[in-house]
Design a protein around this nucleic acid. Structure first.
Length: 979
RNA sequence: GGGCGAUUAGCUCAGCGGUAGAGCGCUUCGUUCACAUCGAAGAUGCCGGGGGUUCGAAUCCCUCAUCGCCCA
């Protein structure tokens, strides 16, 4: 064997081994009749590449999957990719621009979608190959994709996911849980699409607060304070014929439809109901009373632009103000063909200059005009939060449009109940509160996107026909009848919506509806279909013809990933997989997508199949850099997991992540830490190397509880202890405890002590055979139990140390436990360890040369039995040459105590009396401090009366042992005084 | 503004009612036949401040301070 594990060379070979063995197939290594353990890979974006967050998330899942698989559960780890609407469309558009190819608009929708599929075939899914480097054991034969089976999907992209998404939409639509509405949305002017609340990030920016003067109409005036007394009360006023409003967005004044003041604001009470004349525009707009106007902020009067601000929208609704949209989809001022804008005004020349201008240019121009025309009252610097699109990074524009919404409030109830009733657990518990808080305050979820890459909404529109059979072609401005839920106003006319999972279903539905209103001779066609109706009604000339146009929008990516749990298992078909693996066992995810994904999956699965999607949700922290900063490309502090794997090996990276995965806190990753765990792998490797050199090979039928030698019994017991601790930790997602238990066992027990104990035993023919077998077994168990966290090095050693019938990934997880512990062996070896530690410590402190051999004197008539039996070990580990007994410690010796026995080490000529005096004094002081505490405790009547008996007994026993040691040490100190 | 969390050894963090822990770093010693990606030994803590509950508090409660994060 080499001295170290060559991760770079071995890892690909081992990955291939697993692939060939089909080790990750669902159900591999399942016991007959085993329960299922299923876990979903949160589908990475098809555009993505593996970053540290994935590496962490995947490592935790892989540990669970490998552990459960080895335990014999019917394990499914379901992988797949997310089509990631905006992100992918963005990437492909960027690629097209880079290649100087025609852009999206030039090539048209169908061609563009084909391009995206081409791109996906070529470079999508890189991330899944990168996952192999990490050791992810998901079942790639079941790889899913959120766009599989979509109409334009090329060969090889078949699947049911598209059908499932449409089915989900139709089901929710039919149950009234999806609706269409005209309201303000968060509009991304860069991508020209609506986005949901969650995709908006609030960014704090330095900005200005502009004060604008709006002239009062009808001779109204207001008194404005100009001087104050020392208590801040106004003492002098000036009469003004204008109102000052403060705004951070002067450009939206073009769409103002009112000015609000607080109802209790004495300054303006008399003005409520009057009007102001909007500068530049010339529109008369009312002054309204609304508590939204904060008397403390600005001037206390606030301009109201319902079409461009969420708060103003609400004020406008309350006050009955109209909403005038003054921008286009790219957030440019749009006035020319804007009928709503021109209604009732004729406007000044400046408006022509503003038309078509970007919103920020328009802002500058309007401020300049205000200054020139004397209605700019002043400018204050102010910081404020500005909403930004999380993908585009541009300021979003509240925008009045028709969009599809999920009535999230109705879905939230069952999602909260499921957690409240414990059908789904969220861990750590603190995340439950976050979950509830969000669901309790949930707003309708905007799910339509004005994009091309995604699931096109399965809704078609045809002209509305009223119950009397009259077509409403030109019903401009008509509002949909209240009793008709499927009727909407589209581009100024009424349309009837038909929703269905297939064209056939929609055609049938539509035909039935139209025929009921217009007679049997109605032909329904989809846009793009032939308009030739001759074949169907050859005899009839007066056939009514209805054309259905599909809603061009696509669904929010999170709508489709929201059904990931059932969609990947074949829903809406009632598949065996669904029965077998649903609900999934656990979802492992970062808290950053608790709302985006987890809560929505809960809502959607409960709505669609009436059952929770997962039993447990383990919410893990985010990976940050060494300084605790979120890793980001712009900060340049990104640690690339692949680079780290190249440098330290996948096992080291995985172990580090597991070791740092304590619940509820961010984890800060450092290279030192990874190097440390790489060293741990080397340590294990060399223990195996030692075993190989000593011909320790697994013995078939080896029975660990049948060993005779104390040291062997001891390591068998320690191994049992580890299994219990490890399973307990993993069962509660305490990955860091699992990692610590393994580290402590392998390094602290096996390597530090058992290997050393074994050395003399291996040299003695009497004890060699049993020790070889035990050593092989103990190491084998280390490999097995370490495998979920460090799969590569353990698999390599597994294959190297014996002929195996199977890969370790499909090895059997142990079930032994506390019954393996032999209390006597435990006590004996602990005494040996204690003695060796004491002697080593004394030697180091007395500066005894490392190579020097010394004598150990038991200050007693006879040696304790445990020492007698383990002389060879102590001799070797503590460098003892001779063992003696004496009733009194020799002069010039140092004293140590172990298990109530006093041992002396004669160091005549070597001993530094002063150093020994200091050492003893220090030891006694420490013991006395503890003993003192215990004595006062035991002397405390309240403690004796109220503390549990075990605690009292424990304290007594501990005090007794302490006093014994103190006696010995004190005697040693007194003897020293004579020197 | 609302909510959540953190404050423990030089650093990064466990522990969350019964004797203060780990890794890294640091100091000293060591080329003993598994391992220098190593071994042995060692130092370092009023467990953020104050108050309370309790026989007993790093751990539970209150409060203050500081720092994060999420939602407005």
């Amino acid at each position: 064997m080499e001295k170290t594990f060559d991760a770079a060379a071995e890892e690909p070979r081992i990955s291939a081994l697993w692939r060939e063995a089909g080790a990750f197939a669902a159900g591999a290594h399942a016991r007959p009749g085993a329960d299922a353990f299923s876990i979903l890979l949160p589908p990475p974006n098809v555009t993505g590449s593996l970053h540290m967050g994935h590496a962490f998330n995947h490592t935790l899942m892989d540990i669970l999957a490998r552990w459960k698989r080895m335990q014999g559960f019917d394990t499914l780890w379901q992988p797949g990719l997310d089509h990631a609407g905006i992100a992918t469309q963005m990437v492909v558009e960027r690629e097209l621009a880079k290649a100087k190819a025609p852009g999206r608009r030039e090539m048209g929708r169908d061609a563009f979608v084909r391009k995206v599929w081409e791109w996906k075939a070529q470079s999508g899914g890189t991330i899944l190959r990168q996952c192999e480097r990490l050791g992810d054991s998901f079942d790639l034969s079941r790889n899913a994709f959120t766009m599989s089976g979509a109409p334009a999907a090329p060969a090889g992209e078949e699947g049911n996911f598209h059908d499932a998404v449409l089915r989900a939409f139709v089901t929710l639509y039919e149950r009234g849980l999806i609706f269409r509405g005209k309201r303000l949305v968060n509009w991304d002017p860069h991508f020209e699409t609506a986005i949901s609340d969650l995709e908006v990030e609030q960014v704090e920016e330095m900005g200005s607060l502009w004060r604008l003067r709006y002239p009062l109409e009808g001779g109204a005036t207001c008194e404005h304070p100009v001087a104050f007394d020392e208590d801040g009360r106004p003492t002098a006023f000036e009469t003004r014929d204008y109102l000052v409003v403060a705004t951070t967005r002067p450009e939206t004044m073009l769409g103002d439809t009112g000015v609000a003041v607080h109802p209790d604001d004495p300054r303006y009470a008399h003005l409520v109901g009057r009007t102001v004349r909007l500068p530049l525009v010339g529109r008369s707009i009312p002054i309204v009373a609304d508590a939204y106007a904060d008397p403390e902020k600005g001037t206390g009067a606030v301009k109201i632009t319902p079409a461009h601000d969420f708060n103003d929208w609400e004020v406008g609704k309350r006050a009955g103000l109209g909403a005038i949209n003054v921008m286009d989809t790219r957030a440019r001022i749009a006035l020319r063909d804007n009928a709503g804008f021109w209604a009732g005004i004729d406007g000044g020349d400046e408006l022509a200059d503003l038309d078509g201008m970007d919103r920020y240019e328009a802002r500058e121009l309007i401020v300049a005009l205000a200054k020139d025309q004397g209605w700019l009252d002043g400018i204050d610097a102010e910081t404020h939060t500005v909403p930004h699109g999380d993908r585009s990074r541009v300021a979003i524009e509240p925008f009045l449009t028709d969009q599809w919404y999920v009535d999230a409030e109705k879905l939230a109830g069952p999602a909260m109940a499921a957690v409240r009733e414990g059908r789904t657990r969220i861990l750590p518990e603190s995340q439950e509160k976050v979950y509830f808080h969000w669901l309790e305050n949930i707003e309708p979820w905007c799910i339509s996107r004005q994009l091309w890459w995604g699931h096109q909404i399965p809704v078609w529109y045809g002209d509305w026909v009223d119950p009397q059979g009259r077509l409403q072609h030109e019903a401009g401005g008509a509002t949909p009848p209240a009793d008709e839920p499927h009727v909407f106003a589209e581009h100024g006319r009424l349309v009837r919506a038909f929703c269905g999972a297939s064209r056939e279903a929609v055609r049938e539905d539509a035909e039935a509806w139209y025929r009921a209103r217009m007679g049997e001779r109605v032909i329904v066609r989809f846009e793009g279909e032939s308009e030739d109706v001759a074949g169907e009604f050859p005899e009839e000339a007066d056939v009514a013809f209805v054309m259905l146009r599909r809603d061009p929008d696509v669904l929010d990516t999170w709508f489709s990933s929201g059904i990931w749990p059932i969609g990947t298992l074949g829903w809406p078909e009632e598949t065996d997989d669904l029965r077998r693996y649903y609900p999934t066992s656990v979802l492992v995810t970062g808290f950053d997508i608790l709302f985006f994904w987890v809560a929505r999956m809960m809502m959607m699965q409960l709505a669609l199949v009436g059952e929770v999607p997962f039993r447990d949700v383990y919410v893990h922290p985010l990976v940050r850099d060494e300084k605790g900063k979120k890793m980001s490309k712009s900060l340049g502090n990104v640690l690339d997991p692949l680079e780290l794997i190249d440098e330290y090996g996948a096992d080291a990276v995985r172990f580090t992540l597991a070791a740092m995965a304590a619940m509820g806190r961010d984890l800060k990753l450092s290279r030192d830490r990874i190097a440390g765990y790489r060293n741990f792998g080397t340590k294990l490797w060399n223990a195996a190397r030692f075993a190989e050199m000593n011909e320790c090979r697994p013995v078939p039928g080896f029975e660990p509880t049948g060993v005779r030698l104390t040291a062997n019994k001891w390591i068998v017991g320690e191994t049992g202890r580890l299994r219990v601790a490890l399973d307990a930790a993993l069962g509660e997602y305490r990955f860091n405890d699992a990692a610590a238990a393994l580290y402590g066992h392998v390094w602290g027990k096996v390597c530090d002590w058992y290997v050393e104990f074994a050395k003399p035993l291996l040299a003695d023919p009497e004890t060699a055979a049993e020790t070889r077998a035990t050593m092989a077994w103990a190491l084998e168990q280390c490999l097995v139990m370490l495998h979920p966290i460090m799969p590569f090095v353990t698999e390599a050693l597994w294959g190297q140390t014996a002929e195996r019938g199977t890969v370790l990934a499909l090895g059997d997880w142990p079930t032994f436990g506390a019954e393996m512990i032999d209390a006597e062996a435990d006590a004996e070896m602990n005494a040996v360890v204690g003695l060796v530690d004491e002697i080593r410590s004394v030697r180091a402190q007395m500066h005894v040369p490392a190579g020097a051999k010394v004598t150990l004197v038991t200050v007693e008539t006879a040696e304790p039995a445990w020492l007698d039996r383990n002389r060879a070990l102590v001799a070797r580990l503590a460098r003892i040459e001779r063992f003696e007994t004496a009733t009194e410690a020799p002069k010039g010796a140092v004293t140590v105590t172990v298990g109530g026995f006093a041992f002396a080490i004669p160091l005549a000529g070597v001993i530094d009396v002063d150093a020994e005096r200091v050492r003893l004094a220090k030891a006694i002081e420490k013991q006395e401090r503890e003993a003192g505490g215990l004595r006062s405790k035991l002397g405390n009547a309240a403690f004796m009366a109220r503390a549990p008996e075990e605690v009292i007994d424990e304290a007594r026993a501990r005090l007794e042992a302490l006093e014994e040691e103190i006696t010995i040490l004190a005697a040693a100190r007194d003897r020293l005084a004579g020197l």
